[in-house]
Nucleic acid binder design. Structure first.
Lengths: 124, 124
DNA sequence: TTATTATTTGCGCAAGTAGTTAAATAGTCA
DNA sequence: TGACTATTTAACTACTTGCGCAAATAATAA
């Protein structure tokens, strides 16, 4: 991504933007198992169909999912498996970050890092 | 990322959000070469130092860069190399998407797909 | 001390966005 | 045809965010 023109950066940013929303990640998470229609996803996520429909439109526009109309329902499924690789990378980064935070807390608490739960009186 | 609790999804979304901004991607791009201070980045990006400083604060909070105060300047450098892996993945996805779009256009235009200059920003 | 430079922060504006309800659209079935 | 269901779109509200300007803070130099 070195000598990318400005327009490319905008594209990449837009792609990340599509993933930068908890509800959309939740949708992608449910689609990991199998394709689902709008109403189903709405119920699973706990939002209105209208809202989920718009999220799905956005994900479709960015090529993350594909839509297939069947009967009077619209079924969506994952189009770009790279999504999960991305999420795994991010989870790894966040994990390392939390580890560092735990170390930091341990320095003050004088307690071992492992127990985790008991280690956080002051943080977050 | 399968059975993630809702809170985790929010964390992941926030991480993606940090990358979902062209200016911040530009900053990360410049930091790829070497560490730089705020004013330098501001000049390179064409924004005020105030603006860049805020972006750097956000990137720091998400563990993407680290700050080191030296003299009366603040030098920033990449803290999480995963950033570039993420960007490469996204570039790949966008590239494939553009390829598909080119195929689609070719079906109408009757033109070969290969030549296209815009076929793929791809990756390093 | 004061002056100078670099960075950060408070504030306001403009633009973008997630969510709702209600209306419009599309497909199925009698 | 009309009734019914599923999805999409429109209109709206509340909230977030990128930006610049100006003031505040921090470090160096005179």
């Amino acid at each position: 991504m070195n000598g990318l023109p400005n327009e490319a950066l905008t594209q990449v940013a837009a792609y990340f933007q599509a993933l930068a929303e908890p509800t959309r990640l939740q949708i992608l998470n449910y689609l990991r198992e199998k394709e689902r229609n709008v109403g189903e996803l709405a119920q699973l996520c706990g939002y209105t169909s209208a809202n989920i429909s718009r999220h799905l439109t956005l994900l479709t526009q960015h090529g993350l999912v594909t839509r297939e109309s069947r009967g009077n329902s619209a079924f969506y499924k994952i189009a770009d498996p790279a999504v999960y690789a991305l999420c795994d990378l991010v989870c790894g980064s966040i994990g390392r970050q939390l580890d560092r935070a735990a170390e930091g807390r341990a320095m003050f608490a004088g307690a071992p890092v492992a127990p985790a739960v008991a280690t956080a009186p002051a943080a977050d």
